[in-house]
Write a protein that binds this DNA or RNA. Structure first.
Length: 148
DNA sequence: GCCAACGTTGGC
DNA sequence: GCCAACGTTGGC
C-alpha cells in the first residue's frame, strides 16, 4: 500500500472540516506532478493531511475512497481528482519544523519540495511520521527493523 | 525546442 | 508582508 500527503490551507479546507464532512472530492489540483500522484492512488491507500501556512503540520490520516477520475472543475479536461475521507487525527501534529529536524526525513517531499500539493510518502517516512505523531503500529505499515 | 518573464505558493 | 522556489506561459 502506497502512502501520500495531501496539503491544504486550513483557512480554505481544514482537517476538522474533512472530519465534519466525512470526506471530500480532492478537486482543483492543477499541477502535473500532483496529478500523476493521484493517478497512482489505489482504494484504501492512506495519506497524511497537512496544513500549510497555518499550523504547518501533518494533522491527520486520510484514506483514498474513490479512484482518479476527471475533475468537473477543470474545463480543459486535463486534470482529475480522487476522493478522500478522514480516518483519524494525529494525537500530536507533526510540524514541518519537526520533520526538518529528523534526519531520516531529510528526503521527504514535504521537506525537499514544500510546494507540491499532493506528495508521495515512502513507507519509512510514513512509519517515522506516525511515530512522531503519537500513533503506534499502523495497519499495513512496514515493520521497523527492530532491535527487539 | 529553448529560455526569459511572469504568476503562484508557502515558509519565514 | 516579503521573498525564494517552482511551474507555466509565450516569444523567438
Amino acid at each position: 500500500m502506497a502512502h501520500w500527503l495531501f496539503k491544504s490551507e486550513p483557512s480554505v479546507f481544514s482537517f476538522e472540516k474533512l472530519i465534519r464532512d466525512g470526506g471530500t472530492e480532492w478537486s482543483c489540483v492543477r499541477n502535473h506532478s500532483a496529478k500523476l500522484n493521484m493517478m497512482a492512488m489505489k482504494l484504501g491507500d492512506r495519506g497524511f493531511f497537512y496544513h500549510s501556512n497555518e499550523g504547518k503540520a501533518a494533522v491527520g490520516i486520510v484514506e483514498v475512497s474513490a479512484l482518479y477520475r476527471p475533475d468537473p472543475s477543470d474545463a480543459t479536461g486535463k486534470f482529475g481528482m480522487v476522493d478522500i475521507r478522514a480516518v483519524e487525527p494525529l494525537p500530536r501534529p507533526v510540524t514541518l519544523e519537526a520533520a526538518k529536524a529528523e534526519p531520516r526525513l531529510a528526503k521527504m517531499a514535504l521537506v525537499v519540495n514544500s510546494r507540491l500539493s499532493v506528495q508521495p510518502v515512502t513507507d519509512d517516512e510514513w512509519e517515522i511520521v506516525c511515530v512522531l505523531g503519537g500513533l503506534k503500529a499502523q495497519r499495513g505499515a512496514k515493520r521497523a527493523k527492530a532491535p527487539a
